[in-house]
Design a protein around this nucleic acid. Structure first.
Lengths: 135, 135
DNA sequence: GTCATTGCAAACGCTTTGCATCTGT
DNA sequence: ACAGATGCAAAGCGTTTGCAATGAC
């Protein structure tokens, strides 16, 4: 349901707190399955579907970011509130946040030039980080 | 296997020709399933797995481009040989090719600055095209 | 007490693969 | 004839969902 101001009501449960906490500690993008595995590794008992559902709602509520990797998996991470993009290591998942006003401008200019409205864009850079390059 | 110069050998079959032809006629991105459906609609008999495999090899051979949409499906389209990006209409699927040397430079510079190697990037702009905006 | 949330197992949708057959070379 | 290509059905894989039980409010 939704409360008076239109905000969706979310109950605070043990599972939700666990997922939020773990995502907050991440220093790289992680899939729902990895997050679930890490929680279980800590001895916590959380259902996989609960992790999926929680990550979805957290993402909807803009508490966390989600991107799709080249393999089609959805990866999550808690990020800075401002708009930005990611530099992602294909091997270890480490991420670096990038802000690129130039890219934003380019995207909007290109879109408007072709009469497009309601523009959004995706920019992801994948590569091997320094560590994974040498390993 | 591979021929002397390392190029992968591809036999020219009826199915391969059909897929290549249909993709060549596309004016928007299409999934393997859509391509398969269109071929069948024309009365052609091609197996779905053959379409998948053919699109993969065409993509490997750089004859066609592939991108993953927000739903996680892989979409294909025949494109100009040079590196470029897409401006895609969320409503009708129409695409416009964009070349943005500035973006390429930005992506590579950002990656190298952080010690990343073997860099690739994805830049997709989604919006509503002029027609779909007014409709 | 209500109703969101949970957890399991089953279902889903896209894609890949095993394997016997077919076919380009 | 050899080895790639095909097509079917089955498997894979990440993700979603139905449903009864649980727990937050």
């Amino acid at each position: 349901m939704t409360s008076a101001d239109g905000t969706v009501v979310r109950r605070s449960t043990r599972q939700r707190a666990l997922v939020r906490e773990l995502v907050g500690e991440l220093d790289s993008l992680a899939s729902a399955q990895e997050i679930h595995a890490q929680l279980r590794a800590r001895g916590e008992t959380v259902g996989l579907s609960t992790v999926y559902r929680t990550l979805q709602t957290l993402s909807e509520d803009a508490e966390i970011d989600s991107v799709r990797n080249e393999a089609g998996e959805v990866l999550y991470r808690q990020c800075s509130p401002q708009h930005h993009h990611h530099l992602v290591c294909r091997s270890c998942g480490r991420t670096v946040e990038l802000t690129g006003p130039a890219v934003e401008r380019w995207a909007h200019a290109a879109a408007e030039e072709h009469g497009f409205t309601d523009v959004s864009h995706t920019v992801e850079i994948f590569g091997l980080c320094a560590e994974c390059s040498t390993a």
